[in-house]
């Protein structure tokens, strides 16, 4: 069986590839990549490093023609995957683009996973109408059944080693809503700063930088945190038209910077569209997604909470 998509590429194709063994992984992906290269399609493979090496070995010299990226680095924060893939697609206008994207792997933490699932769901609206295929491998043997059920809800198509079918469970909006989970429990020792006016930004930024340094964040990441904290609070002042409470703490593995305001985030794709040169409106969330190792969001009619995580160890 030829496991590639049909020759008629005029719409977005987004299958979940459920594999159970290394052999199935290669059987599903190598033809998809090779056929793309043979057709002259731009191909990008964004998967965890060990999987990248398996594909490299199987593809041989043609691997050099594939844009290869380690997902555990580039996509550590799932919130920055869509902008980078859109950017890749935009650099090949008028061409059918093939992407292999594996943002979920065994080892993703419980804190990371909701952002991964929302990312997968939002891919559908982000690429709707584009001439692109994004194939997302899922390790059906290593991931828990709930994750595989989510994959069936976030992908309109399912490809397995021996069959392909439309997903009867496809319901991406429900996944976005389900993982819009309240973010409680910032620790009692979190440092808090109320940003009620633009002049509050500078002193809060300095205090947050000092706190993060004391908590072990390296200097170059402290600079990123200063930008994250400022962009979070600026977003509240500009878009929520109200104050922002910034909280900073360490959870042992990450420095967490949280912004709370009373605005509601109505655009689920905010922070996931690449900036257009002509568009000078706020790009704060895009900045935060790029700088942080993970971004979690909870929005409701009562307000919005955004947490940015910066890995310390």
């Amino acid at each position: 069986m030829n496991p590639t998509t049909s020759a008629d590429h005029d719409e977005f194709v987004h299958p979940a590839l459920l594999y159970r063994t290394d052999a199935e992984y290669l059987d599903l992906l190598v033809p998809f990549i090779s056929d793309g290269l043979a057709a002259g399609d731009p191909v990008a493979v964004i998967v965890p490093g060990p999987r990248l090496r398996q594909l490299d070995a199987a593809l041989g010299v043609s691997a050099e023609r594939v844009h290869r990226i380690d997902m555990t680095v580039a996509g550590r924060n799932p919130g920055r995957i869509i902008p980078s893939v859109l950017h890749f697609a935009d650099t090949h206008p008028g061409r059918h683009v093939r992407i292999v994207g594996e943002p979920v792997w065994p080892g993703r933490s419980a804190t990371e996973y909701p952002a991964c699932a929302q990312h997968e769901a939002l891919v559908n609206t982000s690429f709707a109408g584009r001439d692109i295929t994004i194939a997302c491998p899922y390790d059906a043997a290593g991931l828990d059944p709930g994750t595989i059920a989510d994959a069936r809800a976030t992908h309109p198509l399912v490809w397995e080693a021996d069959q392909r079918y439309s997903s009867a469970e496809y319901a991406p909006d429900r996944v976005v809503a389900r993982y819009n989970e309240p973010l409680h429990h910032s620790p009692a020792d979190a440092h808090r700063h109320l940003i009620a006016a633009p002049t509050d930004l500078r002193p809060a930024r300095r205090a947050i930088a000092d706190r993060a340094s004391a908590l072990g964040l390296p200097a170059h990441r402290v600079a990123d945190l200063e930008l994250i904290a400022t962009e979070l609070a600026t977003n509240s002042l500009v878009h929520a038209d109200g104050p922002c409470e910034l909280r900073v703490w360490s959870d042992g593995r990450d420095i967490v910077c949280e912004g709370r305001d009373t605005g509601r985030l109505t655009d689920p794709l905010a922070g996931r569209r690449p900036a257009k040169p002509s568009d000078n409106s706020g790009r704060g969330l895009l900045m935060i997604n790029d700088l942080a190792d993970l971004v979690r969001t909870y929005t409701s009619p009562q307000g919005t909470t955004i947490r940015a995580y910066l890995r310390v160890r």
Binding site: H87, L227, M287, D290
Partner: peptide, 11 residues
């Protein structure tokens, strides 16, 4: 490094 990061993201 901040300005370079911003320029990179905003393209």
């Amino acid at each position: 490094t901040g300005p370079a990061r911003i320029v990179n993201v905003l393209d």
